[in-house]
Design a protein around this nucleic acid. Structure first.
Lengths: 224, 224
DNA sequence: ACAAATTTTTAGATTTGTCTAAATTTTAAT
DNA sequence: ATTAAAATTTAGACAAATCTAAAAATTTGT
């Protein structure tokens, strides 16, 4: 007898956070880590952990932490799917810039209508990645994590395509816009500076100097 | 010093209901009427009335009822604007049928992003009416109520165009679909039956028999 | 106009999600 | 291994939004 599972917005946010902190496998996520991520107090997390366990979303071991159950993972992926599809929608259909979408998607991801998100998916042509390069889970929870690496970890002379960002803050994304660094751009590492770990790169033909801070937040898919 | 006005979802629903019950002018809406409409208890309405008055959305007179302030009206129109624009979006862009949109729009109307709804408005080409024929308030709160009347009130031989429905229940809308009665259809009243108030009409060339129940829920814009 | 019926409000309780402060458990250090 | 530090939980409180039951005000009927 499957419970008519009513999930509150707050529960959804906890489930999503636990997933992002790596609670998908059997690895336990600490109360503190969740509290910090969600800017709330550990005691609140404990309370919610009990409720989520009660409802079957997580395994909860007192003083140890929580991990998502299969049902919890399924739920998390559904929320993330909605979040990322809405982000694509906002950018592709409504001309939002990639630094503006997160806040709105945080709201839209909680809209409850299977038909709605499936139609949005269809309207967008079943995109596989969101505007920041993160993979979009399919309806049945599968998604393709790209074989990518940080620009800061690329070897000298290697080439690739910019496919994602690690830091998705508006500040960082606006910086990238200002410097014409966009997903899809081709990149070649020309030189690496030992002293400050900064890079000389070639991007879309033009030469650029990139600080370590930037390079360690850009994902590249290596050629071949 | 304008208060940073945080409106909860519940507050928005009360404001919207009060508006729909006619609380836009200075006419007071009874606690009971609101409770009945919202399927809640009068005591809950009283509590909320106090809060809404505190926040400046309504004028509240103990034992008398509430009416919306100018600020309350502005807020109500903004919510209704969002609701109706989302309805158009669902029908026009995502192929929802007009009996499916209400439930989802009830959720979407609470999304807080001015840019989002303005872009949706733009994407849809600034529609003036929603899928049920109800007018969509503009950004600055103006809207055009059409000069329409119920089919049941039309005189013999008069002609017009179907422009709206009074009853927006899924049951009624599906009935209309089944009988090929749609907004935009031309209508002519051929005969009125005194006994049961039913009508013989001509719709898009074809003759139809329409019960009073149906005729009193269809809005017609008379020709000329 | 006055009693009865209705409506509305108040008082007190409940649920959800949060908090603080204190107590407990686990982890880390010597 | 014992103690100090850190993390976690518990207990008790609070605000929001609701409810029930009782009290108060208004309206209605005669």
């Amino acid at each position: 007898m499957k419970k008519l599972f009513f999930v509150t917005r707050s529960e959804e946010n906890y489930i999503k956070t636990i997933f992002h902190l790596g609670g998908n496998s059997s690895s336990l996520i600490a109360t503190n880590a969740i509290a910090e991520q969600m800017e709330t107090k550990p005691s609140s997390v404990t309370d919610m952990a009990k409720k989520l366990a009660e409802k079957g979303f997580v395994n909860y071991k007192r003083y140890q932490g929580v991990s998502l159950t299969d049902f919890g993972i399924k739920t998390a992926l559904s929320i993330i799917r909605k979040h990322r599809l809405w982000e694509v929608f906002l950018v592709e259909k409504l001309d939002f810039s990639w630094d503006e979408v997160h806040e709105v998607a945080e709201q839209l991801e909680h809209i409850k209508s299977e038909k709605l998100i499936d139609k949005i998916d269809e309207l967008l042509g079943n995109p596989k990645y969101d505007p920041h390069g993160d993979p979009i889970p399919s309806k049945d929870g599968k998604f393709m994590e790209r074989d990518k690496q940080l620009l800061s970890e690329m070897t000298l002379k290697s080439e690739g395509v910019c496919v994602g960002v690690k830091d998705t803050s508006a500040a960082f994304l606006k910086f990238l816009d200002k410097n014409s660094i966009a997903l899809g751009n081709t990149i070649k590492v020309l030189e690496k500076e030992d002293f400050d770990l900064s890079l000389h790169i070639q991007m879309e033909g033009k030469e650029l100097h990139i600080s370590h801070q930037i390079a360690s937040n850009l994902y590249i898919k290596k050629n071949d």
